[in-house]
Each structure stands twice: as C-alpha cells, then as structure tokens.
Design a protein around this nucleic acid. Structure first.
Lengths: 151, 151
DNA sequence: CACAAGGTGGGAAAAAGTGGGAAAGAATGG
DNA sequence: CCATTCTTTCCCACTTTTTCCCACCTTGTG
C-alpha cells in the first residue's frame, strides 16, 4: 500500500520520476501500468495501479445513469482517465491536459493514499494542508464512524 | 507498551537515537520498523511500530472517500506516514518535511503513549505542558466517557 | 580510576534523481 | 505516395542525495 508525502519534480518534458520505494510494488501489482485521472473536489490528480483502477471504474459504471450526480462523477473520472507507463528510468509522462488541470508547475507533491496516489502542485498542497490543520472539528458534526475513532 | 518522557537530540542529518530501553521491544514487535506521521491537532509527530500503524491505516481507509472530514484525516495521516527503520546504532532518520512540521530543533522530547510515541520539540512541549496544567476543566463540559472516568 | 555501554559525528560508497541527446515514429503538405 | 518536419520515446551520463559503517567521545558503573 502507498503512503507518505514525496516532493517530486516535473522536467521540461512533463516527466515525473516515481520515488524508488514505490517502483517495485507498482511493477508487481501492474507491471508498471498506471492510470491517472482528475479529482472531483480538489485540483489534484489521482494515480492508480491499473488493476485498482479497473475495480473503481466498475463501481462507477454500475451507478445509475439517470442520476445526475453519478453521471457527473463518471464523466469526470472515467472521462479523464489516462494510461501511463513507467519508462526505463521509472518515470511517467503526464499529458499536458492533466498537468493543466492540477495546475502543476515544476515541483509537485506525490501523496500516498492507500490504493492510489494523489499528485498536487506543491504550493496548492501546502496551502490546503494549512487549512486542514487549522480547521477544528466539532465532535457533534462528525459522522459516527469518525467520532468514535481511536488512533 | 511505551511510557515515559525522554529528552533526545537530533543530529545535523536529522537522526534521532531511540532510547535503549525501547529498542528491544521495537525489534520484537516489528523488527525495527516504525511509521512516523503528523498529529492533526498539535505540532508533534506520532511514531508507531509498523503493525500498530497498519491497524490504524486500515481503519482510516475504510472511511467513506466522499466525506470531506474523512478525506482530510486520510490525507493528513496516511499522506504523511513515513517508513522508518532503526539503523545499526539504533537511530531513526526523520525526513526534513516531518522535522519542519513539528518545528523540531536540536533537542526534542520523545513521549511514550501506549501503542505509540509522540515526538515534540522540547520548547513546544514545555509550553504546551504549562498550558495543560493551568487549564481548569469544569466537569459539566466533559463528554460522558470522561465525566465518569475513575483514575 | 578504569572499563563498558550508549550516544554522536563524519566520511565514503552506493543509489536515486535529473537532464539532454539521438533515434524512431507520426503527421502534414506537396 | 513520398519527403520533410515535428513529436515522442528510449537510453546514457552526470550530479546530488541517501545510506551505511566506523571511530570517537561522553556518561554511568564497578
């Protein structure tokens, strides 16, 4: 499973070196094949090993087509899903459309989130993180799964 | 279980010598493998033996992805979770991003908290401790789990 | 006072990240 | 349909970072 925050750089061709510690796992899991798509609520990209993505896509496609919220989710996520492959140096090439979506400049943050990564522009990530840290969660607003969580 | 407060120092490379009395237990429990992540309400780091962390990560990952509060918690905790390993001298190397988060300078406090440690910058720790000691808790404001607590 | 154990620092070897260039492939226009 | 040009992909080499190991110093103990 993927976890942790990694500072990564995009070179002039839009290539991103996957941190070495993840490479072996990605090759085991999907022979180096990944899918990148957009996040529905934040300016970041989601990156899944291919088999993980296929499960997600199946779940999305089972949603009721006549429900506008479901339809929107399908269009955003399936519609932007792009095949990527690790090259000989362990890098992936991000198409410019996805780079623009996430406002990616030279330095970015690759965030492990279990079965996927999130890719943020570094500045966007820092800004959002500050907000999350400052937000106080009044216990009354928490859904029951969260309110009783013991870490 | 881990308990007690230990003064520790970080060297110029960000390495921290784990107090000897914990080393054996850490090796038994996880072969020297630890996870460090950020605390969501205070400027300190949380350090878990790997198996302890895996339980927590599982709980976090089961939370609904579309819930913004859950998402925030996942991004902070799983997103900053970093694998650490005790080196030949019983030290761990804290990446600079985590050191910055907890405002760690040369001297820090490693606080045993049962299944995990908390790591504070020494000055931050002393300051917070003063505040906790001064704060009066009127019994009426306590949630039921606390109001009935017998220590 | 001497010895042992833990803590600290630094340096060298290895690995990872970065950039550039050449070759192969695709697209466009004549 | 062929030729030229632009884009994409693959590979190699250099630089920087990380990791591992060894030696010294300090502290506690017999």
């Amino acid at each position: 499973m993927f976890r942790g925050a990694n500072k990564v750089t995009l070179d002039s061709k839009g290539r991103l070196a996957m941190p070495t510690r993840y490479r072996e796992r990605i090759f085991e899991r999907s022979n180096g094949r990944l899918i990148a798509t957009v996040d529905r609520s934040d300016p970041c990209l989601l990156i899944y090993p291919l088999p993980e993505w296929e499960e997600i896509e199946l779940k999305l496609r089972r949603l009721p087509t006549l429900n506008p919220v479901a339809r929107r989710l399908q269009r955003l996520m399936i519609g932007h899903a792009t095949d990527l492959e690790l090259d000989g140096s362990g890098r992936i090439l991000l198409p410019s459309s996805l780079r623009e979506f996430a406002k990616l400049s030279k330095t970015a943050m690759l965030i492990g989130q279990g079965n996927r990564f999130e890719l943020w522009d570094e500045a966007q990530w820092n800004e959002s993180r500050e907000q999350w840290l400052q937000a106080e969660e009044p216990a009354e607003e928490l859904p029951p799964e969260l309110a009783s969580l013991s870490l």
